[in-house]
Amino acid sequence: MHANAPAPAEDEIRAIVAPMTSLEGPLLPMLHELQRIYGFVPEAAVPVLADVLNLGRAEVHGVISFYHDFRDHPTGRHVLKICRAEACQSMGANALAESTLKKLGIGWHDTTSNGAVTVEPVYCLGMCACAPAAMIDGRVVGRVDQARMQRLLDEAGA
């Protein structure tokens, strides 16, 4: 969903989460589904979820803001996650991340000016024996060096 798209309507959100109301502990699955569809959790979802689950709005907001995964704004067309955990650090992840951000001229969580790529940190992709690792739109890449990173950025149009 693009930044300038209209905010989703209440009944649209309600229809998305309705099939999940019978789950035990439905809030996280609902938030994941909303983020899958919109690319982030729209603010308009807070009162709807509060109503559907009989929670306070503050409680729903508290849950959304607790988890790193849930965003309140759209990302670029691609999301590049660079692992910052110890195993990747032992293979030069810090330098790789630094040079990537510098090349793109952005900081963590920022999106390139052409809207192509958002760069986010991640703590472990389970690629610890083929570090350093990155993930682009859910696809993992191991032993990422400068050249491989450049290919990923090129593919993403950064």
Binding site: E86, Y123, C124, G126, M127, C128, A129
Partner: peptide, 11 residues
């Protein structure tokens, strides 16, 4: 499995 250096669960 959030610990860095672990991937047995994933595997």
């Amino acid at each position: 499995e959030g610990d860095s250096g672990t991937f047995a669960d994933r595997m």
